Simulated scan of single mutants.
Amino acid sequence: MIDFILWVLQNIVFAPYYLFVAVTNPGAWLDWANPEAVMRFIYYGASVELFFVVFTTFLIITALGMAWNREILWWGVRILESFANVVGRTAAWAGLIMVLVQVMIVFLQRIFRVAEIQLGPLGTAFAQDLSWWSEGLKFHNALVVCLCVSYTFVQGGHVRVDLVYSAVKFRTKKVIDMVGCLIFMMPAIVLTYLYSWFFMWRHLMTPSVTSTSDLDRMIAQARIFRWNVETIGFSPNGFNAYFLFKILIVLFCVMVFLQAVSFFWRSYLEWVEGEASADKYLDRDKTGDESEDLEHAIHSGSV
């Protein structure tokens, strides 16, 4: 146990050094014309070093906000929630595009018996079989699920099962939220990210990399590195960009982790400042219908 604590403290102390080395040597991991740089990027993208850089940054900002100026944390909350809203509101348009594409497929396939859809924006032709467009609807759905998850959280749209939460006092709720972020939300999404990171890269390049590979082994594998992006569909003419789903899983993990940080800070600030600070700076969508907005506020727990 003592060895583990010393290991954690040592990595926290060296985290600024890890960050300094990465920032001052971008060519060592961003020069993707060099296979060794790609391998370093893959390794450090889910490494102990990266974890402690992020963890230490979180600790420093949280400590400064708690001990010095709470506005630091409020600015962090506003920036992260604004980011979640911007990404979510943009990605939500994929839902409309999905509906329009589905309508187009039904009309062209069932009424006009067209087997292929060809688009020619800016003089460039893009032609794909109807089955490609049909299978591609899953990608639009994945965009909404993965990129709107934090936005939905900010808007209070996720389903909650309030067996105890709804019956306790305001500050007790905030304690539950903070504990939930630290014990459940953050560890779960970090583990998901670690698995999804290497899962993504196994569908983008060869040789195959795993979470157990050390840096020296991956640098040695750089000699046989080549891009091998997954372009195989489930049907002969079906959607052939399934590697995008793997990228979306990683982005999903990043969005949820940032939201967990934001929600922890907001819960702490509302716990300290009391009910007067509830939903402070919270940017939620309005429908223009007062009764519908009130019903949504009640459902999300704001009222």
Rank of each mutant, 00 (worst) to 15 (best):
E49F: 00
L182D: 01
V256L: 06
T192K: 00
E116I: 11
L194R: 05
W68K: 09
M66Q: 09
V99D: 09
I117P: 03
I105D: 02
V106S: 12
V101F: 04
S47W: 04
V229D: 01
S150N: 12
W29D: 06
G156W: 10
V209H: 05
Q10D: 06
I232A: 07
H299L: 09
A37Y: 01
V21I: 14
F170I: 07
V77A: 03
Q118D: 11
R226H: 15
G76V: 06
I189C: 05
A37Q: 05
S166K: 15
F170G: 11
L30H: 04
S208K: 13
L147F: 00
L258V: 06
V303F: 11
E292C: 12
V103K: 06
K280Q: 06
A220R: 14
W227H: 10
V54L: 15
L59I: 15
L194E: 07
D3I: 10
V87T: 11
S131G: 04
E49C: 07
I219R: 14
F83W: 14
V54R: 02
V86Q: 03
K173Y: 07
V87C: 10
A127P: 02
A15F: 02
D214A: 14
A37L: 08
A127H: 10
A241W: 04
V303T: 12
P35M: 02
W201T: 02
N69K: 14
F126M: 10
I117T: 09
L64M: 13
C181M: 15
L194Q: 08
E270D: 08
D214W: 04
G95V: 08
E273M: 03
D214Q: 15
S235C: 03
E71F: 03
S291W: 06
F245L: 10
G180E: 10
I224K: 12
Y268M: 10
I111Y: 09
L73S: 02
A84E: 01
S196I: 00
L100P: 05
V106P: 12
N237E: 11
I176C: 10
V254I: 14
I249K: 00
N25F: 12
D289L: 14
S277H: 09
A260M: 02
I111C: 06
V144H: 03
T172N: 08
G238I: 08
H203D: 02
F239G: 04
V48A: 04
W197Q: 01
I232M: 03
A84N: 08
K174S: 05
P121Q: 13
M185L: 15
V179H: 05
K173E: 07
E36P: 04
Y43D: 03
V103G: 12
R160K: 15
Y193I: 00
G123I: 05
T172S: 12
A276H: 11
L50P: 02
T24P: 03
V303N: 05
A188V: 07
R40T: 15
M205D: 01
W74I: 01
M98E: 15
F139R: 04
A63Y: 14
L244M: 12
N240L: 00
G233R: 10
T287P: 03
